[in-house]
Amino acid sequence: MSPAEPATAASEGAATGPRSAPPSAARWWWTFGLLRSELGVTLRRWRTLALLGILAALPVLIGIAVKVETGDGGGSGGGEGPAFIHQVTNNGLFLVFTALAATLPFFLPMTVGVVAGDSVAGEAAAGTLRYLLVAPAGRSRLLLAKFASVVVFCLLATLVVAASALLVGVALFPVGDVTLLSGVTVSFGEGLLRALAIALAVTVSLLGLAALGLFVSTLTGSGIAAMSATVGLLITVQILAVIPQLDALHPYLFPYHWLSFADLLRAPVLWDDVLANAGLQALYVAVFGSAAWARFTSRDIAA
């Protein structure tokens, strides 16, 4: 990984020597321990819980809005509104897809931006970063643990939206066999599986922004600055993505394939864009993840 790696292993071996554990096992133990503590710190924050609460409330709002709108026998309003919203009244499961489609452009990435931006810079601002570095795990693995906990948050945030939407959908609307976008009918069980696959696809969609946020977070010592910079970047990119003159640039922007998760609802599944999305997110993770690593392992930690 880096020329400094042998030195790391050696010094760690020395550090853990008295406990007579093999260096590699110790390294994994530390990584796991770090990840666990990182996750604990992230998920126990009031801020994180508030963000998840907002995400859980959104599907409730959408569900009630659809119910009220169609409850008095009002007809369908053509192809307007968020994706899948017209199918919601027939099948509550579609509320999962509607909720994800409605939160994906802004709410979901915004929460990811807050958590990712805060991950390193927040610790630096609070003065706890240097104590973390005391742990004999090395900065690379600390960063990895930070990124892993952000990834877990991405998954959790998506699942919170999906689960809340599923509960509201089942409570307010009929459920049953699912008619896919292509007009093919599948069982409710397969519909649930597809919903899970879509939640995973949405999680993958958020990884690029997570890496970007982590990188921004290593640049500054202020958590607020990193969070607002990440969310600002998100907004900027979303604006760039709708300017037709920047056509040539669009395929390289991380939200470009975000709506591809809908392709999982076709029969047969159209994989092209889903895979293209995964590739694009992997590219962002590779570029900004390694940039974050380069920055974090070489910068001075004064606070």
Binding site: A4, A7, V134, G138, S290, A294
Partner: peptide
């Protein structure tokens, strides 16, 4: 910062700059 196990401590600035070559 003790325990910052060599990831930074033992490398020179030139080598650190090299890390930006990765991204």
């Amino acid at each position: 910062n003790t325990g910052d196990t060599g990831d930074t401590g033992k490398s020179r600035p030139g080598k650190k700059a090299m890390r930006y070559a990765v991204p």
